[in-house]
C-alpha cells in the first residue's frame, strides 16, 4: 500500500458523487461569477424560522457526514503514512495512537451522522461531495497536516456542531441536539490533540511552527467562506469561543480567526456588490 493516497482515489460506493474541482470553479453562479444573488448580501443565519431551514439543515448535515468520512480517512492515513521516529517526516508513537483513537471517534461520527440523516429524511449521497477536508489531510508534513486538519477544520467542526446544537435546541429537535452535543465533545478532544502536538513537536523549531500556523490561517480563511463563519449575530455559523479555548486555542488565536472571518465577510460582500452592480 502506497504512502499518501491522493483525494481522487478515495473509495466510495455508487451512491456518492464527487464534486470535481472543475465543477467547483466553473460554476458562474457563485459570488463573483456573474450570477445574481437576488438582492441578498451574503449567507444568512440558519434559524429554525428561516423559510428553508429544514432543507438547509439537511444539506449542511450531509456535508458534515461526508466530512466525517474524510476525517476518518485522513486520521487513518496518518496512522499509515508516517513511521515512528524523531525525524522530520516521522512522528511520535503517541501521536499515532491519538490518530487511531480519532479513527474510532470519526467512525462513530459517521454512524451518528447516518442515523441523523435517516431522522432528517436525507439519503446517503443525496448531495455532491467535495473533498476539501481530505485534501488538507494529504499534507506530507505531519505537523502541517495535524494543524490544518485538527486545528483549522476540526475547529470549524466545533463551530458547526455548536451552532447546530443550538439550532436543534431552538427547533425543539431532540435527536439533532443530542447528536451534536456528543460530536462536539469529541471534536474538542481532536482539536486539543492538534494544539498539543503542534506545541510539542515544534517546541524547538519556531520556523516549522510558523509554517504550520500559516497553513492553518490559509485553511481557516478558506472556510470562513465570505462570512459564513464569524462572531456577528447573523453569521450562519458562530465561532464557538468557549469550546475552542477548551481545545487549546488561546484567546488571541480565537481573536485572530474572528478577524479573518470579518475580513472574509467584507471581501465577500465587496464581491457581491461588484457582481450586482455589473
Amino acid at each position: 500500500m502506497k504512502k499518501i493516497l491522493p483525494p481522487e482515489e478515495l473509495a466510495r460506493d455508487s451512491r456518492f458523487v464527487r464534486l470535481s474541482m472543475e465543477d467547483r470553479f466553473s460554476d458562474r453562479r457563485s459570488p463573483g461569477g456573474g450570477g445574481s444573488t437576488s438582492g441578498r448580501t451574503g449567507p444568512t443565519k440558519l434559524t429554525p424560522d428561516a423559510p428553508q431551514a429544514p432543507d438547509r439543515a439537511r444539506a449542511l448535515m450531509h456535508g458534515i457526514f461526508v466530512g466525517e468520512i474524510q476525517a476518518l480517512e485522513g486520521a487513518g492515513r496518518t496512522c499509515w503514512d508516517f513511521e515512528v521516529g524523531p525525524h522530520f517526516d516521522e512522528v511520535p508513537f503517541a501521536l499515532k495512537l491519538d490518530m487511531a483513537r480519532q479513527c474510532w471517534d470519526e467512525a462513530r461520527h459517521c454512524e451518528i451522522s447516518i442515523k441523523l440523516s435517516e431522522w432528517m429524511g436525507t439519503e446517503l449521497g443525496e448531495f455532491a461531495e467535495s473533498t476539501f477536508l481530505y485534501e488538507a489531510a494529504c499534507n506530507p508534513d505531519p505537523v502541517l497536516r495535524l494543524t490544518g486538519v485538527n486545528r483549522a477544520l476540526e475547529g470549524l467542526a466545533i463551530d458547526v456542531f455548536n451552532t447546530m446544537r443550538e439550532f436543534g435546541q431552538s427547533a425543539g429537535d431532540p435527536v439533532l441536539e443530542f447528536c451534536e452535543d456528543w460530536m462536539l465533545a469529541d471534536e474538542v478532544t481532536h482539536v486539543k490533540m492538534g494544539s498539543d502536538w503542534l506545541r510539542r513537536i515544534t517546541e524547538k523549531d519556531p520556523d516549522r511552527r510558523e509554517r504550520a500556523l500559516e497553513f492553518q490561517r490559509v485553511v481557516d480563511k478558506l472556510f470562513s467562506l465570505g462570512g459564513f463563519r464569524g462572531e456577528d449575530d447573523d453569521s450562519p455559523i458562530r465561532l464557538a469561543r468557549k469550546f475552542r479555548e477548551m481545545a487549546g486555542f488561546t484567546h488571541e488565536e480565537v481573536d485572530e480567526i474572528s478577524d479573518l472571518s470579518k475580513q472574509a465577510r467584507a471581501e465577500g460582500e465587496a464581491r457581491l456588490a461588484q457582481a450586482n452592480a455589473s
Binding site: P54, D55, G121, E123, D173
Partner: peptide
C-alpha cells in the same frame, strides 16, 4: 417524493 424529508420539515414547523 421523499416522505421522510417532508416529515422532518413538518416536525420542524409543527413540533416534534
Amino acid at each position: 417524493p421523499q416522505k421522510k424529508r417532508r416529515l422532518y420539515h413538518f416536525r420542524n414547523r409543527h413540533g416534534f
